[in-house]
């Protein structure tokens, strides 16, 4: 039962996901405002969704093909299309049922280049959606993140603590300076605006707040608060619950990379309507990767950082 009569061989991608909630969670994580257009890129490796704002912030969601129970990719050139993120997430949400995993099939393109979704749970009840896609922007999306030196400048912090710290920094607002110091190993977030607020995260072996810390020289960059906030504003409850850790890396020129891991749970019981491939059975980590790239604010004295 499908919403549109499309021959299977005509589709560039037909994939099945056991639990739509994981996809809702991962896409919601990059939903920092109401109206956002995303670019979706399909490939033999999986699905990547890219968002951009004001040439200063980029987010990417990686849904590797191993997350899907079935992943049939048939395109010769990687298809790319634009879609309203809000609409996509809202449509996916209609498939979710509290306390139960819902399996869906995603198909692209439909007869009119739509993105087609349909539920797979029961042959007698079917939910479907056809989302209109748009031609994506031709703007270069590449933020060229490169390491700042031979030793990476990075730290991993519990996701809930990171979100809390960034939420607290709303009060001073405007710009937030992130400082990394090798001795004593620590990270500080400092906001200077209506008032000053500094949050220090000290790295030591006993603390499980900072899980990892790599820094061989002091480094300091300023970022616009609204972009920094976008990186944690909509973290799904599953990330907070698992509280694994979010990794922050400072690259060349002060470009900040924030990485989150979103669990994409599978159905508690195998779904008889979903074809379970062998590769899927062997896949242990069921994680969607979320990356944010935040450009720093221009410093008056750039020399002190590079």
């Amino acid at each position: 039962m499908s919403s549109s009569a499309v021959e299977p061989e005509a589709a560039d991608l037909v994939c099945q996901l056991e639990n739509v909630q994981g996809m809702v969670d991962s896409l919601s994580a990059v939903r920092w405002k109401r109206h956002q257009d995303a670019v979706v890129e399909l490939s033999e490796h999986g699905i990547v969704l890219i968002l951009e704002e004001s040439n200063c912030l980029q987010a990417k969601v990686y849904l590797r093909k191993e997350l899907f129970a079935q992943y049939d990719y048939n395109a010769e050139e990687r298809p790319r299309f634009g879609v309203s993120l809000g609409l996509f997430v809202d449509c996916l949400s209609t498939f979710t049922v509290p306390g139960r995993a819902t399996a869906i099939e995603i198909r692209y393109p439909g007869p009119d280049m739509q993105l087609l979704l349909k539920s797979l749970d029961s042959s007698d009840a079917c939910i479907y959606a056809e989302i209109r896609t748009i031609i994506p922007d031709t703007v270069s999306w590449d933020y060229n993140f490169e390491p700042a030196g031979s030793v990476p400048l990075s730290f991993t912090v519990k996701s809930a603590a990171l979100k809390e710290a960034i939420d607290d920094l709303e009060w001073p607002g405007s710009s937030i300076r992130i400082n990394l110091k090798p001795a004593p190993p620590s990270v500080s977030f400092r906001g200077e605006g209506h008032g000053d607020l500094q949050i220090d995260l000290m790295y030591n072996a006993n603390s499980d707040l900072l899980l990892d810390f790599n820094c061989n020289r002091p480094v300091s960059h300023r970022y616009k608060y609204k972009f920094l906030r976008a990186t944690t504003s909509n973290l799904p409850s599953s990330v907070m619950k698992e509280n694994r850790g979010s990794k922050l890396t400072i690259g060349r020129g002060g470009m900040l990379k924030v990485q989150h891991l979103v669990p994409v749970g599978r159905a508690p019981f195998p779904n008889p309507h979903v074809i379970d491939s062998a590769s899927h059975q062997q896949q242990p980590g069921r994680i969607a990767y979320i990356e944010f790239f935040v450009k720093p604010e221009e410093e008056e004295d750039d020399a002190r950082n590079d």
């Binding site: 039962m1 919403s3 309203s84 609409l87 449509c91 209609t94 042959s123 007698d124 009840a125 079917c126 939910i127 479907y128 959606a129 056809e130 989302i131 209109r132």
Partner: peptide, 12 residues
């Protein structure tokens, strides 16, 4: 709507 068509069918 112009952007989306969303449906549910319950059969039998």
């Amino acid at each position: 709507t112009a952007l989306v068509s969303l449906g549910a069918e319950f059969r039998k």
